[in-house]
């Protein structure tokens, strides 16, 4: 019986040197392509889908996080280039976000390292996913449904209410961001960048799902530069997270990342085109639903009694 099992699975099976398991080549390419498509369409890294899916495929959580971060580097590069050509990247804003992101990524990698040691990494990763995905998803869905309702009523909608001042404008260290037509303090983008860097390193996500709404609702950036600038910052933060995970935790699987990137780059290009055919609020509603769906899925895993209460972790593995 075992003989048949082994030979039947040989087709398209590939052994991953760091994860130390054998996976199906086509499944991993397809997963990369699906996530890349969403990445191009919404301007998110897609890691919030990729990392949980990798864990479901049997990749150890820490390896899924590090490899997910590496994959996002690849899809973000091609995504940024596509956005760059359309003049949708605010370099000034990107630089400030990256500065914050570097600090956040460092904290995230060290935090994950500590939690792995005490055996609670999986739980904290899952809980953080639920809280962030749940909150962001609900807020986005609420906003986009309202926007769609207004749109149907014939009113013009703009996510950016220019001229309207909020608490952000009271902060010091004001900077000029010509591309975004903003003159605001550098502190909010630094904090947002740091938070996104922390999430990138800790959850293996690009952080687009939090950065895009933060840019729209807190920084009040014009929607057309939001996606390009977000994905631009994601390249640097996920690259740093990849490097830190590889150096400190030895959890990066280059072969797995390579497969996911190949699929992701191709999927990403189609995603960008698909995204242009949808209106902003439709795009946001769709993303919100997806974010909520993944959040609920992770929550179910936490609440439902596991089939096996016991789990084993070999020290030599991930």
């Amino acid at each position: 019986m075992s003989t048949r099992l082994l030979t039947d699975q040989t087709m398209f099976q590939i052994y991953l040197p760091i994860a130390e398991i054998s996976v199906n080549l086509l499944v991993m390419l397809g997963l990369g392509a699906a996530v890349g498509f969403l990445s191009g369409m919404f301007g998110v890294g897609g890691g919030f889908l990729l990392t949980p899916f990798l864990m479901l495929s049997g990749i150890p959580p820490a390896i899924a996080v590090a490899t997910g971060a590496n994959q996002i580097v690849g899809t973000s590069v091609s995504g940024t280039l596509a956005q760059w050509r359309r003049g949708n990247v605010d370099l000034h804003m990107g630089a400030i976000l990256i500065a914050g992101g570097v600090a956040g990524a460092l904290i995230g990698v060290l935090l994950l390292r500590y939690l792995r040691g005490v055996g609670q990494a999986g739980l904290i990763i899952s809980l953080t996913y639920v809280v962030f995905l749940g909150t962001i998803g609900t807020l986005m869905l609420w906003e986009s449904v309202n926007a769609m309702r207004r749109h149907r009523a014939g009113k013009t909608v703009s996510a950016r209410k220019s001229g309207q001042h909020n608490w952000i404008h009271g902060l010091p260290f004001k900077m000029r961001f010509p591309r975004s037509r903003l003159y605001i303090s550098a502190i909010p983008p630094l904090v947002i960048g740091a938070l996104v860097g922390l999430l990138a390193a800790f959850l293996g996500v690009g952080g687009g799902f939090i950065m895009v709404p933060a840019m729209i609702y807190i920084l009040r950036m014009p929607t057309n530069v939001v996606v390009g600038t977000s994905i631009f910052q994601i390249i640097f933060v996920t690259a740093l997270a990849t490097l830190l995970h590889a150096t400190l935790n030895h959890t990066l699987d280059i072969l797995l990342a390579f497969l996911l990137i190949i699929g992701g780059v191709i999927g990403g290009q189609f995603g960008v085109r698909a995204g242009q055919k949808l209106r902003g609020e439709q795009l946001r509603a769709l993303l919100a639903l997806m974010v909520l769906g993944v959040g609920v899925r992770i929550l179910i895993d936490l609440v439902v009694r596991p089939a096996d209460l016991y789990s084993i972790i070999p020290m030599s593995g991930g």
Binding site: V73, V77, A239, A257, I261
Partner: peptide, 12 residues
């Protein structure tokens, strides 16, 4: 790992 990712993204 980063170089491979950047290169693949560029080529894509």
């Amino acid at each position: 790992g980063i170089a491979i990712a950047v290169l693949a993204g560029l080529m894509g």
